[in-house]
Computed example of a mutant assay.
Amino acid sequence: MRPPAFWDAAPTHPVARVLRPLGALYGRHTAGRMDRAGLRAPCPVLCVGNFTLGGAGKTPTALALAGLLRDLGANPAFLTRGYGGSLAGPVVVDPDRHRAGETGDEPLLLARLAPTILARDRLAGARLCVAQGADPVVMDDGLQNPSLTKDLSLAVVDAGVGVGNGLSFPAGPLRVPLARQWRHVNGLVLIGEGAKGEDVAKEAHRRGLPIHRARLIAAAGLSKRRVIAFAGIGRPEKFFVSLRETGAEIVDTRAFPDHHPYRASDLEDLAARAARAGADLVTTEKDHVRLPQLFAARVGVLPVTLRFNDPGPLIAQLKALVSGSQL
């Protein structure tokens, strides 16, 4: 879905005010579910979640955390629900065999780095992770899911949007009122810069939580190329900015809803735009895995990686997780 504009406006926006009672009911119900005790997995569980609906940068964060865990000598495996895919699991994701329609897009990216288990039943998925040699499990999303006990939960926030208007869905983007979510979080990953993100960071600091600041680094290689950029992610504008910062000449853009399933009409339109402009098509890694293979071969990709400004405090939390002192 594409977030409605009023989610990023003041909470007094007329539409938000009308929907606020429904948001209060939804938030209260989800908060009660979030507070339930989960079952213990056979190994430590690191949850990479977010406070809101939509993208915040969880997947690049999960990939970066798995890299740090490997540097510590651990054997991480990813556990994901596979949003947008048809498989229920538990199943080991194979990028050479599975398609985005089966698994969703994120699992295909995660599986390039470490064993990735797709499972709607999180406990069954964690057990399969362990069977694949995992220690610990890195759970991509699931902060509000109570089925598993989390040993370390990090909330990812895009500093450019923060938590929007601070209201619960559908009045705003929050899954649960923010005050109810802090008790389930052990640290904040703040990606990029922005006043709204700083507001969240101030609250995290007030509660004594570590704040891990990070930024997305785009790969080089597109400098001075004429490109048409398209993306179906949480904030396509962020991708367009990253692409422009590489030195690419963006002649046109097209934004799609998050996790958009590309149709033939979309692909025909993109190809026609590129032909008229004499430009190359470029998209994100998440979008690229959702494209039909023949069309994907004609589209460039801008890989991005997450880099922590000061990884020391985060590494300390990960060491405690690996050693079991958080259990």
Score class of each variant (00 low, 15 high):
residue 266 D to M: 04
residue 66 A to T: 08
residue 55 G to H: 06
residue 263 R to F: 08
residue 205 H to C: 12
residue 156 V to M: 05
residue 233 I to R: 01
residue 296 A to G: 03
residue 79 L to V: 02
residue 121 D to G: 03
residue 143 L to Q: 03
residue 175 R to P: 05
residue 326 Q to H: 14
residue 236 P to I: 03
residue 144 Q to S: 07
residue 294 L to F: 11
residue 59 T to C: 07
residue 254 R to C: 12
residue 103 T to C: 09
residue 219 A to V: 12
residue 201 A to F: 00
residue 295 F to D: 01
residue 56 A to D: 10
residue 85 G to Q: 01
residue 304 V to M: 08
residue 296 A to T: 04
residue 82 G to V: 03
residue 173 P to Q: 07
residue 132 Q to F: 11
residue 182 W to N: 01
residue 124 A to S: 14
residue 314 L to T: 01
residue 58 K to Q: 07
residue 304 V to G: 06
residue 69 L to S: 03
residue 325 S to G: 10
residue 78 F to E: 02
residue 44 P to S: 11
residue 139 M to I: 09
residue 99 R to Y: 08
residue 315 I to K: 14
residue 229 A to G: 11
residue 125 G to V: 02
residue 171 A to P: 03
residue 39 L to F: 13
residue 271 A to I: 08
residue 312 G to V: 13
residue 277 A to E: 14
residue 144 Q to I: 05
residue 99 R to E: 12
residue 210 P to I: 00
residue 209 L to W: 00
residue 100 A to R: 01
residue 189 V to N: 00
residue 167 L to V: 10
residue 238 K to S: 13
residue 229 A to K: 02
residue 88 A to M: 13
residue 262 Y to R: 04
residue 305 T to N: 13
residue 15 V to D: 11
residue 318 L to E: 02
residue 298 R to K: 15
residue 295 F to L: 05
residue 308 F to M: 08
residue 192 G to N: 06
residue 192 G to Y: 02
residue 117 I to L: 11
residue 138 V to Y: 04
residue 155 A to W: 00
residue 211 I to F: 00
residue 139 M to E: 11
residue 109 L to F: 06
residue 37 A to M: 13
residue 8 D to W: 15
residue 245 E to T: 14
residue 3 P to Y: 10
residue 55 G to C: 09
residue 253 T to Y: 10
residue 92 V to M: 13
residue 217 I to H: 13
residue 99 R to D: 09
residue 211 I to K: 00
residue 200 V to A: 00
residue 117 I to F: 05
residue 292 P to Q: 05
residue 77 A to E: 03
residue 222 L to C: 09
residue 175 R to S: 02
residue 224 K to M: 13
residue 61 T to Q: 07
residue 196 K to H: 13
residue 160 G to A: 10
residue 82 G to L: 05
residue 95 P to I: 07
residue 292 P to E: 05
residue 137 V to S: 03
residue 17 R to G: 12
residue 68 L to W: 11
residue 280 D to N: 10
residue 230 F to D: 01
residue 305 T to V: 15
residue 281 L to P: 00
residue 267 L to F: 09
residue 279 A to G: 06
residue 180 R to F: 10
residue 247 G to V: 08
residue 126 A to T: 02
residue 31 A to N: 06
residue 115 P to G: 07
residue 131 A to D: 15
residue 94 D to G: 09
residue 314 L to M: 04
residue 36 R to K: 15
residue 173 P to E: 06
residue 74 A to W: 03
residue 241 V to C: 12
residue 243 L to K: 01
residue 35 D to M: 13
residue 273 R to K: 15
residue 179 A to P: 12
residue 293 Q to W: 11
residue 287 D to T: 04
residue 213 R to V: 00
residue 294 L to C: 12
residue 66 A to C: 15
residue 94 D to M: 09
residue 223 S to C: 15
residue 37 A to Y: 12
residue 51 F to P: 00
residue 30 T to K: 14
